[in-house]
Write a protein that binds this DNA or RNA. Structure first.
Length: 114
DNA sequence: GTCTTGACGTAAC
DNA sequence: GGTTACGCCAAGA
């Protein structure tokens, strides 16, 4: 079988599984995608991905809940707006992972191939 | 096949 | 919690 999904494909699939109102870090996405430590790959995928893919990029942040982009950038603002619209509270470009951090359930983990 | 880049992570200070 | 430095590895040229 030569139809193994590319690493990038797995990442995109994982991102689509992020529930609304929750946020996940790049490292977590990579880990769930079966690529522990490959957080940079996640970023690369999102950058190359189009908006038509329905990838909730705004639900992906850096570690510790910091926004994925530097403050002042157009996307950083858009991200905070989108997150707050989903019910995620942001304080100083930071998201409280204690309350909004994505906690994948067992079924979700199995669905991702765990 | 080699070099460069990259929506990052973690450690150290 | 901010900043600096280094590491990791896939994809593109």
């Amino acid at each position: 079988m030569t139809h193994k999904l590319s690493k990038t494909d797995r990442i995109m699939k994982t991102i689509r599984h992020i529930p609304m109102g929750k946020v996940a870090s790049y490292g977590q996405i990579a880990d769930l995608a079966g690529l522990p430590g490959r957080a940079r790959l996640v970023g690369k995928v999102l950058r190359e991905a189009d908006a038509e893919l329905s990838l909730p990029w705004h639900r992906v942040l850096r570690s510790s809940g910091l926004l994925a982009f530097a403050k002042g950038t157009k996307q950083a603002i858009a991200q905070s707006e989108l997150l707050q619209k989903e019910g995620v509270l942001i304080s100083h470009c930071r998201v409280k992972l204690d309350h909004f951090g994505w906690r994948p359930s067992i079924e979700t983990l199995m669905m991702l191939g765990f």
